[in-house]
């Protein structure tokens, strides 16, 4: 690899990292404002114009707070756990294409950090790693609430990952590839070629599973504050707590991006050939990607302030008795259709 190529990759990594972190900041602000509006309140409006600097103030507060490590915790794991949670959350974004490719410096640059040919697998693998962060945090805290939170989280993630994976399988069957770019290309063309219209059942299962994967309401049993104080992060304070916080929002951003990629044609603008418009087309595609993502992020918050939390047994029943059979049925349906089509 030449120097230019290396630089380009480096720039892309930095841009994606910075964008994700910025997204986290925006999300923290958005969550508080949106939830306030939904409850007929005002929300943070003191720091900066309309309170936009609130996340910065929060960040400073977290930095200044005492970093408390309880006496009886398993120290190395206790300190490592937030990092184990945050790093995969940030890494996942590496394979997600966020725009059509551009021509610069005489070469075509894909707007994607790494075009991995098993991109979907990569994502599923990394989200599985993040559960370690939660379980380790819960276990090392030496606190019954934390442990319960961690246990709940692991059980929940295993149950829903299955349904999510199977829902994605039907998409992969349609696209015939694990590469995310291929999946996007597969959805290009008319408006109705998006997977949401071709695979509505898979979309529904995937969406629900995503909420469970990100530990967001109505599936936030691992930190259910009414029962478990703070769940797996009960004992955490200061920047360590902030890392859990950031990881949650980074996960949300990734999940939204993945949903867009798999079901809403990624950066695709319907009925438009981005390639023919040059740089403008690329910008348009990035904008389209961001808008779609913004909608799903808003949906995350919207759902949070609308639905109550599941009870634990309800959660498990929904996962194993409803979602899993439905996903299998969906694969069967898709495979059957494809077979019939191949047979002519």
């Amino acid at each position: 690899m030449d120097l230019l190529g290396f630089t380009i990759i480096l720039v892309k990594v930095l841009v994606v990292f910075a964008a994700t972190m910025l997204g986290v900041l925006v999300m923290i602000y958005a969550e508080r404002r949106v939830s306030a509006f939904m409850q007929d309140r005002v929300g943070p409006n003191r720091v900066g114009p309309k309170g936009v600097l609130q996340p910065i103030a929060d960040g400073i507060k977290f930095l200044m707070k005492e970093d408390l490590v309880p006496e009886k915790v398993d120290k190395p794991i206790f300190i490592l756990a937030p990092a184990i949670l945050l790093i995969p959350a940030l890494m996942t974004f590496a394979v997600i294409p966020f725009g059509s490719s551009i021509n610069l410096f005489g070469r075509e640059i894909a707007l994607q950090v790494a075009d991995v040919n098993v991109g979907v697998l990569y994502i599923l693998a990394l989200t599985s790693i993040s559960v370690y962060g939660i379980v380790l945090a819960g276990w090392s805290s030496n606190n019954k609430y934390s442990l319960l939170g961690g246990l709940r989280s692991s059980a929940q993630l295993i149950s829903y990952e299955l349904a999510m994976g199977l829902a994605v399988v039907s998409i992969i069957l349609l696209a015939g590839s694990l590469r995310l770019n291929d999946i996007i290309t597969d959805q290009q063309g008319s408006f109705f070629s998006w997977n949401i219209f071709r695979q509505p059942l898979a979309f529904l299962i995937f969406l629900i599973a995503v909420y469970a994967e990100t530990n967001r309401l109505p599936f936030d049993l691992s930190e259910a504050e009414q029962e478990l104080v703070g769940g797996y992060h009960t004992e955490y304070s200061s920047m360590k707590f902030a890392m859990f916080f950031m990881a949650e929002y980074a996960n949300m951003i990734t999940a939204a991006a993945l949903t867009v990629t798999l079901f809403f044609g990624g950066w695709d603008v319907p009925l438009l050939d981005e390639g023919s418009l040059g740089l403008f087309g690329t910008l348009l595609s990035v904008l389209s990607f961001l808008l779609k993502m913004a909608f799903f992020l808003f949906l995350f918050i919207w759902v949070r302030w609308t639905f109550p939390r599941f009870r634990y047994d309800q959660l498990m029943r929904l996962g194993w008795k409803v979602m899993l059979p439905l996903a299998l049925f969906n694969i069967f349906l898709t495979a059957g259709y494809l077979t019939l089509k191949a047979l002519g």
Binding site: V34, A36, F37, M38, Q39, D40, R41, V42
Partner: peptide, 8 residues
């Protein structure tokens, strides 16, 4: 409720 006048 998102568009309602807030009561704060």
């Amino acid at each position: 409720h998102f568009f309602r006048k807030n009561v704060t």
